[in-house]
Design a protein around this nucleic acid. Structure first.
Lengths: 144, 144
DNA sequence: GCAAACCCCAGTGGAGAACCGGAGTATACT
DNA sequence: AGTATACTCCGGTTCTCCACTGGGGTTTGC
């Protein structure tokens, strides 16, 4: 029941990209990585996955980088996590549980998944950005 | 977001034990394992964990075995999964996330956890048993 | 044309999950 | 009492996956 480093990195990166969306200026891997303490060669892979998932666009060549594919309030956390974790296919050759006991357990676990996904679907990157800003205010007030 | 084999095995085993609770007759590892297709030496470890967690009692010696420690409707699925997965300690030295971005992400993940745990807490072993029985009826009706 | 960026693919180290085995201990039945 | 049958404890083994690293490419701006 932990959030994988993979997904956390992806969210952090997109959180960095969000404020730059209006300007249309791309942000480079190195900058994001150093800003959020993420191994840059690893972040590269995650951004590639996000690109294939249609969440970010990339600009190749010198002065290139990454930018959000659409507005921050049109990207839910579910979009991000499911893209990075790749858990869309529930209709794949997962053994369709033979015994009735296994079926029942599978069914109730489906409810657990749905509950979790519901929370992820109701938050967008924009929400995270706003929460971040509010959090920063609190941090400043408590700073000495 | 998958249910581990560990937890699924534990739930299956407890599901087997549930109907035997009223009689007070213990069930042996071998029987449970063969009934639910679980490696028996592995199931042994899981039952030991459940015993230490106070969910089952064991009867040693010949004609021994395992039985539920309390009524099936007094054991929630959360009890089982948290015991087997051991994820109680949220107040441990998990790095208390330095950056405001990480804090915000950590916070929203807390909501996801809570949603998932809420579902697990509202179901008991008794519920699973009843669902299983209902499921069996359906299976029989569709058989041939 | 060359440097700065992304792109692709392959490999490695460590941790944990799933499982197996053996020696010991308690209990029931005869 | 003795023996068979269970649980109990502890260790090891295999395998997979996560997190990360590295070595090449290709595209683009200056």
């Amino acid at each position: 029941m932990d959030l994988s480093a993979k997904s956390e990195y992806a969210l952090l990166a997109l959180l960095e990209l969000s404020p730059h969306y209006p300007s249309g200026e791309p942000l480079q891997i190195r900058q994001i990585a150093s800003q959020q303490n993420i191994p840059d060669r690893y972040l590269e892979q995650l951004l590639a996955t996000l690109r294939r998932g249609g969440l970010v666009k990339s600009q190749r060549g010198a002065r290139g980088g990454y930018l959000l594919a659409r507005d921050p309030w049109k990207i839910t956390l579910y979009d991000v996590v499911s893209c990075i974790e790749g858990f869309e296919p529930q209709a794949d050759p997962t053994q369709v549980s033979d015994t009735p006991e296994a079926q029942v357990i599978q069914g109730m676990w489906g409810e657990v998944r749905q509950a979790a996904e519901g929370v992820l679907q109701k938050y967008t990157l924009q929400d995270l950005v706003e929460k971040r800003n509010a959090q920063q205010q609190v941090d400043i007030m408590y700073y000495i």
